[in-house]
């Protein structure tokens, strides 16, 4: 009952405070678009080797930003090993086959799109092979899922944490606790009010990334929504919990490098397999690790529920833990 009152009030505040509402939706879209512009570019200059390909064919595919050098097969393979060239073009039964060096998805994407464009003019088929790895994804495709998760997490953390903090600094928390509301009702009200808002936020961000920015997407859109909403709730419960330890908005911002930035390192944007065991343990304590992993599972590998349910349960566990701690932390403001 009181929870519903808090939810209604938060939604009303969102309607009035358009800036916060816009921040939570427009800012992630803006940053995702910028990342997309930087990462999904085709403009990188690429270099490929032509092995046993007729001269006129080599000339026909050369284009701005792509040099094609005629080489011996052995020399080309050595260069591929050293990643000095980005691909090797051969002819097999008259069909061109391009072996991509493949370690940098960004470059692979550039080679593919340039060649495809040249060949489509001649309507010639082509086959693709990979020297290293087998990813057929651009860099943005690869980091996209983690970025979606990260931005949802980041902005909900900030806006949720600061709103809860303001409740304290403007005295309304005390006023609220001088009424017959339970501490848990305050916290659930926040989860509910922001939760409803983050559903809208998650839909917009996920749909924009997948359908407008065209991030690689092999899985179920509803699964993506489920995971982003859970990440938002985790971020909200963490943000409100952390705000109990901040004296003002400025101190809340100081928690970003402490709480948010480290999570980025473990979210899969950077490889962590080779790191020391204790470092990986640290990563396992961070909600973003699980959210990003689940999103990659769904979006890149088209995972079914079974293969990412563990991450979902862990995110729910984090939310439950932070919420419980938050209810306890409120004791500081009313012992009952």
């Amino acid at each position: 009952m009181n929870t519903a009152a808090v939810i209604k009030r938060i939604l009303r505040q969102f309607r009035r405070d358009k800036r916060s509402a816009a921040l939570m939706i427009a800012a992630p879209l803006l940053v995702l678009t910028l990342m997309w512009l930087v990462l999904d570019t085709d403009e990188a200059a690429v270099e490929i080797a032509a092995v046993g390909v007729p001269e006129h064919f080599v000339e026909s595919i050369e284009t701005e930003g792509m040099t094609v050098t005629v080489m011996e097969e052995q020399e080309a393979e050595e260069d591929l090993d050293r990643a000095e060239i980005d691909g090797m073009l051969q002819l097999e039964d008259g069909v061109p086959v391009l072996t991509l060096e493949g370690s940098d998805p960004n470059t692979s994407g550039a080679v593919r799109s340039k060649l495809q464009k040249q060949l489509s003019e001649q309507s010639s088929p082509i086959e693709w092979e990979y020297w290293n790895g087998s990813s057929e994804l651009g860099l943005f495709d690869y980091v996209g899922p983690a970025l979606i998760g990260f931005f949802v997490f980041f902005f909900v953390f900030i806006v949720g944490g600061v709103s809860f903090l303001r409740e304290r600094t403007q005295g309304t928390l005390e006023r609220l606790l001088a009424s017959p509301i339970r501490r848990s009702e305050v916290v659930f009200g926040y989860l509910g009010g922001f939760g409803l808002f983050t559903i809208a936020q998650s839909v917009v961000i996920a749909a924009y990334s997948i359908y407008v920015l065209d991030v690689f997407m092999a899985g179920n859109f509803l699964y993506v929504l489920l995971v982003t909403i859970l990440m938002a709730l985790t971020a909200l419960s963490l943000g409100t919990l952390v705000s109990a330890f901040a004296g003002n908005e400025f101190q809340m911002i100081q928690f970003i490098p402490l709480v948010i930035v480290p999570q980025v390192f473990f979210s899969g944007l950077f490889p962590t397999e080779g790191l020391a065991e204790w470092v990986q343990v640290v990563g396992n304590l961070m909600p973003l690790t699980y959210g990003a992993e689940a999103l990659r599972d769904i979006m890149l590998r088209g995972a079914s529920w079974e293969s990412f349910q563990m991450e979902v349960f862990i995110l729910i566990g984090f939310t439950a833990l932070f919420t419980a701690l938050n209810i306890i932390a409120l004791k500081k403001h009313r012992p009952l």
């Binding site: 009030r9 505040q13 405070d17 403007q170 005295g171 309304t172």
Partner: peptide
């Protein structure tokens, strides 16, 4: 202790609903 984005009536309505 008031919510500055909300109107006077909305503030009262919120506190009233807590009772």
């Amino acid at each position: 202790a008031l919510y500055s984005e909300l109107t006077g009536r909305e503030n009262l309505d919120f506190f009233a609903s807590l009772y």
